[in-house]
Design a binder for these strands. Structure first.
Lengths: 128, 128
DNA sequence: GCGTGATTACTCGGATACAAGATGTCCGAGTTTGAGCGG
DNA sequence: CCGCTCAAACTCGGACATCTTGTATCCGAGTAATCACGC
């Protein structure tokens, strides 16, 4: 079990966009160069962030990606969910009576992690 | 990102062994039947638990797997680590100055989850 | 100058290729138990 | 009744086969800005 590289790219892209601040779009080419990843692949990842309403894209010349207006409230968990999906880390998928105790324990552990990631938002990150 | 099925099998096997209690070994055939998984595959998973010192195996007729003496202290985290390995969920693997802030945040979130899983041990589970 | 068209610099989406890891199977080898059998 | 042998019931480990998912590339299409050119 590991976070995917795509999540890593998404997080770093957001970090960069936040630290650059101006409202001018940044091309995927530049974003990709900084992270040593192919532009076309990064583009696919960023499309997910667009659909999740975190950034917006401007096509055409001088186009690229820029933060959406609500960027300060975006949390780490939001970004991770946008890339990895929102399904839980564990499902017992075995019927041994209702309410598998293992399922309950693992999910509550996951919730602990989610809670921490939910409290970390972009506006705090930019201070560092 | 998801926990593997193997982890699910391992956890449920431990739960079963704990609830059965007697020191008589349980054959992998019976364990596999309960979880609807092939015996040979489950055997490979259980071998990892043996190497981690959580259970022990008895070969030969009437053989099988049984809990080790220290079973009460085994935590969920121990089992998960035995199957999934101990590498962290996230590594930035990108050099943008020392101490990637993203890495720090995600790892501290993981630590929250680990802490919860570390506190859940087998002796508590058996009560439920 | 001023529209108009062509060129350029981008994003978007689908299809596809590739790689790695999880999942599962097969088989040969070792080990213990217990039953059978001969003395 | 004792001891020997042999079969049965297991685990163990390596080598595969298969499936899924993440990662990455290619290409054609759409879109916006800018440049060139003719009037």
């Amino acid at each position: 079990m590991k976070f995917s590289k795509a999540t890593n790219y998404a997080l770093h892209t957001m970090l960069f966009l936040v630290s650059v601040t101006p409202n001018k779009p940044v091309s995927v080419l530049e974003l990709a160069k900084r992270q040593e990843v192919s532009p076309t692949y990064l583009s696919k990842i960023l499309t997910k962030l667009v659909k999740a309403g975190m950034i917006e894209s401007a096509s055409g010349a001088n186009g690229g990606y820029r933060l959406n207006l609500n960027w300060e409230n975006i949390s780490f968990l939001d970004i991770i969910h946008a890339i990895e999906g929102t399904t839980s880390l564990f499902d017992c998928s075995l019927d041994h009576g209702p309410g598998c105790p293992i399922q309950q324990i693992v999910l509550s552990a996951e919730e602990k992690m989610d809670e921490h990631l939910r409290n970390q938002n972009m506006s705090e990150l930019v201070k560092k």
